[in-house]
Design a protein around this nucleic acid. Structure first.
Lengths: 342, 342
DNA sequence: CTGAAAGCGCTTACAG
DNA sequence: CTGAAAGCGCTTACAG
C-alpha cells in the first residue's frame, strides 16, 4: 500500500538534483532560488533535473540557516466552540497559502496545558504565537520575556503592553439599540446571558448608552441576565411579557436567547416584527436563518479579527511590533425579525 | 514591547549550554538526552547550565538528523462546519501533547487548494497526512506515490487501497429505527436532507432494513428527501401529518430537521413523545438540549473517528500501514423526545 | 558564471 | 566517561 512507511523511500535531495544536472550543489541551489549569477542554460538543466526527480526542497533545512521557521503557533481555547473557528480562518487567510504555516494546539481553557503547548511550539522555533481565547474577558499574559512576538485574539491580555485584538462589545450593544430606535421602538427590553461574561455586561452598557442618547431607557430599568440558552430566552421573555404587556422590542445577548424569545412570542400570539421586534447577537447563521421570522443579528466580524491578529503578528515578526488592544467593529445583519413599527 | 522582533535576541543553543557547563557539545547532548555514558555529576552540571540559560533544544535541527519532523499535516475541507472539529480534537488527543504536532490547513472543498497545501506540507517534511472531508461521500485519492502515509477521515478515498476512517451511516439509521421499534412505534415516518448526500441515503437504507426486520416499513413507503434545514423539517412534517394523521414516530436525518419537526408537531397540538416520538441525527448538543422536549439523537462519535484516524496514521508512520475503510459506530443518545408508547 | 568551504543546531559512531 | 569529527540538507559569502 502506501509508500513512505518508516524511512525506506529516500527523499530526493538537492545533492541528487545537482548530480543529475552535472553541477555543484551551490549552483543548483542558486539556480532553483532564482539567484542572478547563473547561466540560463544551466538553470534549465537544474530545473529539469529537479522536475525529473520531483524535488521538493527541505524547508526545515532552509530554515535552520535563516533562523526563521516559517510557522506560527496557534493556541486556541475554544476549538469546539464557534468563536475560535472564524478567527482561525481569518488568520489562515492572512497567512497566504504556503508561505507561512500554522501549528495548531488546543489548550481547552487550561493554563497548564497552554504553558505546555507554548513550550513545545517554542521548541519547534515558531516565529510567533497567536493565542485565541474562549471568551472575551481579559486573561493573564504569557509574560514579556518570550523569544517571539505574541498576539492575543478574542480574549485580550491583561498586560496593556501586549498586543491584543478583540471585539468591541460596547459598540455592538450600541449598534443593536440604535437599530431598534431607528425602527421607532420605544419600549425595549434587554435579555442577555451569564453575567460573569464581560461581553454580556459590555453589550448591555452599549445598548443602555444608545437608548439614553435617544431619551429612552431599558424597559424595566435594567437588563435580565441569565444563561446563554434558548431556555433562558423563553422564560425571560415570559417574564418580560408578564410585567410589560406593551414591550415593542427585545434585544437579546445571543442568537440562542433570541430563538427562545421568538418561540415564546409566537406562542403568545404576538407578531414579530409587527408587535415586537427581536434582535440577536453573534449572527450564528444556522440559528438566524432558520428562525421564524429570520433573525436580525449583530455579527462580530470574527474573520476580520483573525486577519487583523495575524497581520499584527506578521508585522511584529518583521520587526514592527505594536502594543495595545485593537477593537474590531461589529455590524448589523438585518433580517426579518426587525422592521419599522407599523 | 515584545522581545523577539526579527532576529535580535539570540536564542540559546546547545553550544552555549556546553560552554557554561564546561563540557563538549557532544557530552552536553548526551547528558540532556539521558544517554547512559555520562557521569552523574557532569549530567547535573549540564542540566543546571541548561536551566540557567532556559535552553530549549531546536527540534528542527534534531529532526534534520532523524529524517522525521515530528509533525503531521492535517488538511480539512470543513473548518467552518461542525463535523471536522470533533474529528480534529480526537486526532489532537491521540497525538499526545508535545510529541507530535499538527500543521493545519483549510482547503475549503477545493481540490487545487488541497494539492497546493499537500505540496507545502511535504516541503515541511511532515511524517504523514490526514485529510478530513466535509461530507461522508467518497472522494478521489491523492494517489499512491506520496512519500508519506495518508489517512482519509470522514470522507473516504475512492481507492480501496488507501486508509480511510468513516462513520457507518447505515448502522446509524438502523440504531435509530430499532429504538423507535423498541418504543413500540409502528407508523414511523422518515424525513431527511439533501438526497445527493450518501449519508442521507445510507441512513434511510439502515432505517428501512431495521423496520423490515420488525415486519414494518417506512410510513408512506419511502423517506422524504429535502434539505438539511429546520425549514424543511417543518414543512415535511406538515406533509406527513396531512397524509398520515396516525403517524406515531418521525426519524429525522439531522437535528436541524428534527427541530423543525418538533416545532410543527407542537403547533398542531400534538404531544412529543406521547403522540409522536422524534429522533434526530448528529447529536448537535446546542440544538438537542435546547429543544422542547430535549431531542433524542444519534451521535456519530466523531472524536473516536479522529482518534482512530490518528492512530492508523501513526501506525503507518511507524512502518505498519493498514489499507481499507474502517467504520466507526454511532450511538444513541436518548433524551426526552422518544419514549415507550403510552 | 561556477564551485569549494563554512556553517545553521544538533546527534551519533568512533577514538581516546 | 569525554570529546573531535562527520553529517543531516540547505544557503551564502568568497574565490576562481
Amino acid at each position: 500500500m502506501q509508500a513512505g512507511s518508516s524511512s525506506s523511500p529516500k527523499v530526493t535531495t538537492l545533492a541528487d538534483v545537482a548530480r543529475l544536472a552535472g553541477v555543484s550543489i551551490a549552483t543548483a541551489s542558486k539556480a532553483l532560488n532564482g539567484r542572478s549569477q547563473v547561466r540560463e542554460e544551466t538553470r534549465q538543466r537544474v530545473f529539469s533535473a529537479a522536475d525529473q526527480l520531483q524535488f521538493s526542497p527541505n524547508v526545515l533545512a532552509r530554515h535552520l540557516l535563516s533562523g526563521r521557521s516559517g510557522t506560527i503557533g496557534l493556541v486556541t481555547h475554544d476549538l469546539e466552540g464557534r468563536f475560535s473557528i472564524p478567527t482561525l480562518m481569518g488568520a489562515e487567510d492572512a497567512m497566504g497559502t504556503g508561505r507561512m504555516s500554522v501549528l495548531l494546539c488546543d489548550a481547552r481553557g487550561d493554563a497548564l496545558r497552554e504553558r505546555h503547548h507554548v513550550q513545545a511550539l517554542l521548541g519547534r522555533r515558531v516565529d510567533g504565537l497567536m493565542i485565541v481565547g474562549a471568551r472575551p474577558d481579559p486573561r493573564s499574559s504569557l509574560g514579556r520575556d518570550l523569544p517571539v512576538p505574541v498576539v492575543y485574539a478574542y480574549a485580550p491580555s491583561e498586560d496593556p503592553e501586549d498586543a491584543s485584538v478583540v471585539t468591541d462589545n460596547v459598540a455592538a450593544g450600541r449598534i443593536g439599540a440604535e437599530h431598534m430606535v431607528a425602527c421607532g421602538r420605544e419600549r425595549i427590553a434587554v435579555i442577555t446571558g451569564d453575567p460573569t461574561y464581560g461581553a454580556a455586561q459590555d453589550r448591555v452598557t452599549g445598548a443602555q448608552a444608545a437608548l439614553r442618547d435617544a431619551g429612552l431607557d431599558i424597559l424595566g430599568g435594567s437588563a435580565l441576565f441569565g444563561a446563554w440558552s434558548e431556555e433562558w430566552g423563553r422564560s425571560a421573555t415570559a417574564m418580560v411579557l408578564g410585567q410589560h404587556r406593551d414591550v415593542d422590542a427585545i434585544i437579546c445577548g445571543s442568537d440562542q436567547i433570541a430563538r427562545g424569545a421568538l418561540d415564546t412570542l409566537r406562542e403568545r400570539g404576538l407578531d414579530v416584527p409587527g408587535d415586537v421586534a427581536v434582535l440577536g447577537h453573534d449572527n450564528w447563521e444556522v440559528l438566524a436563518t432558520n428562525a421564524r421570522p429570520t433573525l436580525t443579528s449583530i455579527d462580530m466580524n470574527l474573520e476580520t479579527l483573525g486577519r487583523r491578529a495575524a497581520r499584527r503578528l506578521f508585522d511584529a515578526i518583521e520587526g514592527h511590533p505594536t502594543a495595545g488592544v485593537e477593537a474590531v467593529q461589529s455590524r448589523l445583519v438585518p433580517r426579518g425579525s426587525t422592521a419599522p413599527k407599523a
